[in-house]
Computed example of a mutant assay.
Amino acid sequence: MSGKIAMKKKVLRRLKGQIKFIFFLFKANKNNRSFKMLKNKYLLLSFIGFSLYCLDKRLKKQVKVYYVDSMPFGFNGLAIPPFGIFIDKKHKGNKNLLLHEIVHWKQFQENGLLLFLIKFFFYQIKYGYDKNPMEIEARFNESDFCKCNYTFCVKNGIAKTVSNPNFRKL
């Protein structure tokens, strides 16, 4: 039971840090017009409410896994915090794909929703999908070549996780 209490305290500290970060954005960007939307009090309250909702979700040990008929952009699976992991029904028995998505879920649990999203999209813009450090961490069971060339490996059937010639097609 003490482990659960320690986890709650850790999550509350992280939530407090996220709220401080939002207030920092308000103060630092008072005169910046691009942050007008952030100044909206209702947006801030929504963010706090959503963070509290996520607090409860993050404390649960098991993540919900949903098997769906199709995934957007040719993806095979997606971890969408705080809702769960979504995997294409064609890959229902694929343990490697599930483990890949669980790593993303653990990244979310460690960082919190806001920091997870900021980090993930920052890395996505800076490095691209194949070189994104959070993606490389999730590819722990792939070969060294596939860790940094994942799209090529998936499209050509080399990846251990999954094979899909339509992977990441827009």
Score class of each variant (00 low, 15 high):
Lys41Asp: 07
Phe145Gln: 10
Tyr129Glu: 07
Lys119Ala: 10
Ile87Trp: 04
Lys20Met: 15
Leu55Asn: 12
Ile19Phe: 04
Tyr123Ile: 02
Ser51Val: 03
Gln107Asp: 07
Met37Gln: 08
Met71Lys: 00
Lys4Gly: 14
Lys41Pro: 15
Phe50Leu: 15
Lys36Pro: 00
Phe140Ile: 13
Gly93Asn: 13
Tyr127Asn: 08
Val154Ser: 11
Gly74Phe: 03
Pro72Thr: 12
Ile125Ser: 13
Asn40Ile: 12
Lys27Arg: 10
Ala79Tyr: 06
Glu101Val: 10
Lys27Glu: 11
Leu38Glu: 11
Met71Gly: 01
Arg168Ala: 07
Leu44Cys: 04
Asp130Ser: 03
Arg58Cys: 05
Lys95Glu: 09
Lys27Cys: 10
Phe121Pro: 00
Leu115Gln: 12
Phe23Ala: 06
Tyr150Glu: 00
Tyr66Ala: 10
Phe35Met: 11
Ile85Lys: 09
Ile125Glu: 06
Asn111Thr: 08
Phe145Asn: 05
Asn31Tyr: 13
Leu117Glu: 13
Pro81Tyr: 04
Asn166Phe: 12
Ala138Tyr: 03
Arg14Gly: 07
Ile118Arg: 07
Asn166Met: 02
Asn76Phe: 09
Ser143Leu: 05
Lys9Met: 13
Leu45Ala: 14
Lys92Ile: 14
Tyr123Phe: 12
Ile87Arg: 14
Met1Ser: 12
Lys30Tyr: 12
Tyr150Trp: 10
Ile102Leu: 15
Val65Cys: 08
Met37His: 09
Met71Cys: 04
Ala79Gly: 08
Asn164Cys: 06
Leu12Gly: 00
Ile85Trp: 10
Asn76Val: 15
Lys90Gln: 13
Lys57Gln: 10
Asn94Ala: 09
Phe75Ser: 11
Leu99Phe: 07
Phe24Val: 08
Val162Arg: 00
Trp105Val: 00
Phe83Gly: 02
Leu115Thr: 15
Tyr42Cys: 14
Pro165Arg: 04
Lys36Gln: 13
Glu101Pro: 05
Glu101Ile: 11
Lys106Gln: 15
Asn94Ser: 04
Leu114Gln: 02
Tyr67Trp: 05
Asn164Asp: 12
Phe167Asn: 08
Cys153Pro: 02
Leu99Thr: 12
Phe83Arg: 03
Gly128Glu: 00
Phe152Trp: 08
Leu59Val: 01
Pro82Thr: 00
Phe116Glu: 02
Ser70Tyr: 07
His104Ile: 01
Lys36Arg: 08
Lys10Tyr: 12
Phe26Cys: 03
Glu137Val: 07
Gly84Trp: 03
Leu98Met: 10
Ala6Met: 13
Phe86Ala: 03
Ser163Met: 04
Phe145Trp: 04
Lys10Phe: 10
Ser2Trp: 06
Cys153Gly: 09
Gln107Val: 10
Lys4Ile: 13
Leu117His: 09
Ser34Val: 15
Val68Met: 10
Gly17Asp: 14
Leu117Gln: 12
Gly84Asn: 02
Lys57Leu: 01
Ala28Ser: 15
Lys92Trp: 06
Phe50Ile: 15
Gln18Pro: 00
Lys126Thr: 12
Asn149Lys: 08
Asp88Gln: 09
Asn96Lys: 14
Gly77Tyr: 14
Phe121Trp: 12
Phe24Gly: 14
Lys131Trp: 01
Ser46Asp: 11
Lys90His: 11
Lys30Thr: 11
